[in-house]
Design a protein around this nucleic acid. Sequence first.
RNA 1: GGGCUAUUAGCGCAGGCAGGUAGCGCGGCAGGCUUUUAACCUGAAGGUCGUGGGUUCAAUUCCCACAUAGCCCGCCA
Length: 568
Amino acid sequence: MNKEFQIHWLEEIAEEIINRSVKDITLSTGKTPSGHIHLGILREILICDALRRILENRGYNVKNILFFDSLDAAKRFPIYIPKDFQKKHIGKPFALIPCPFKSCKCESYAHHFGNELSKTFPKFGIKLKILWTHELYKQRKMQEYIKIALENNELIKNILKKYILPTLDDINKDKFNKMQKSWMPAMVICEKCNRIQSKDKAGNIVPNRVQKYNKKEETVSYNCEYCEYSGDVSIWGGRLKLNWRIDWPAKWAMLKTTCEPAGKDHSVRGGAYDTGLELCQKLYEYEGPVKVSYEWLRLGNYDMKTSKGIVFTPEKYLNMAEPEIYRAIILKTNPNKHIAFRIEELSQYYDYYEKMENVYFGLIKLDDEAKNKFLKYTYPLTHVKEIPKIKPQRLSLKLLSFLTQIQNIIPEDILYKQSIKYMKDHNFDKIISADEFKILLERSYHWIEEVKKIIEETSDIKTKKEIMRKLDLFSIPIKIDNEILDRIQDNQKLGIRMFRQFLIKNENLNADGIQNKIFTIASEELKISPKKLFEAIYLIIFGKKNGPRLGSFLSMLDKEWLLKRLNI
RNA sequence: GGGCUAUUAGCGCAGGCAGGUAGCGCGGCAGGCUUUUAACCUGAAGGUCGUGGGUUCAAUUCCCACAUAGCCCGCCA
């Protein structure tokens, strides 16, 4: 096979989908709403969203679906769910558990966390249709698929065996074979306690597995592992749930899913995707979707653990950065590579995005032609709103982060005026409004707060300092330590004293006056380079050699504090 | 037991599928800019491409092992 090298990995997937020669394309993803859903889920959703745009542009009819697997049982709860609530509802499907937050009047636990995620979709430019598994199972067609599964148990077991057995060691082979003897492809939600599973003494999960399929009566017999109730239920009563390995292919067949990305957990050899495809073909006579596997998205060096409450939600992301940037991160990275999303590296992501814009708008051209094409291809896919005609100008993250950090001592309207001046000086074709400015400032504030959290959690002092430096995080030190004083030469110190005298003598100080004075002291009186004196003042105030434009900055500060500070 | 991913400059990452002088950003260093540093420009420095083997005229790239880190599968989902 002489496969042509594609411009973008998305093209390779798109091509594979197009080769299916179907008129209506269905792209699907799924997620269990077991708690706050973290940013990682957007990886597969955004891949599908990009595919949707690509395929729609070529005239295909594309439907995007997200399944909330609301019929999945609560195996455990995240740490922020109260203990007594956990005890009361463990083992029930999430759709049958009430919302854990008293003041919230939403439909169920599943809806609470599902809706929390889905309300961010429009902001990310994601268009899709949400389906709830608990509603799907109420449909007659799905129940017919359950019936097919129950009637073909041996076939299912053989397929599972074929894929899973070679991946097991001897002990587990034995266990697996034993387990298969009584295995049936569906479970029952207990009529008495609403549970679908329980735990045995060893902590193993024991599902309310169908014990017997009564073909003539169209019922199944079961025994609840939790409350020990046993009985028969009709297969048309909506109390049956297919096992995960069958549930997935049944959904594929029902929706005629053309493509579904899957995390590496499902993509492994012997995993649910492999068995699912064959089951889908043999059981439901549908070839199954195009498989796209993707690696996890990690938060820095940590994995996001829903159970431990380490979650960074899409909502939190939107509070601190623009959605386009995240789309770009996802769409530039090959799905089989893991992404370490580093909040403290946000400016790098913005830099990358700007490079993309520059290439797209023809402002720069990279030596690597393939890279140029790649960026030009990717850029439009990152957009949430319509693509601008010319490259948009924006206030840099660095500037915003600076303004944010002096926000508590300098009022917002003054900061806004400063920004207007900046935008005018830099020939912005559009001066942003005060409201827009406020949003930017808030984003930047949230970003810095997140980074501060990271710094707090970091134990390594070098790393802490590194992050602070990268972000230009500054805190005005309470005391100037000797180490800093040692770095200042005598003539610089003299300059500082002269400058201090100037401040004392002059009542009405303005930015330019201060600025000019520093220069004249340095160049005329001390005959040193003005840079040296500026550096010395920065050291005294910030503990580092650079900082904001001094004239305007000092004029905004409390004079008494400043005089005390400069008294060296 | 079976897999996946990562390991490239102080930090963050490209490159790898198509083997041929090791790249980007940030920082650090030196210098320039006669009112700045919320900025720009110039220069030099910094790497045994995780380790060990193999294939090859040639390996950071391909193959195999190993190490470290993280994750996943095998019950459930």
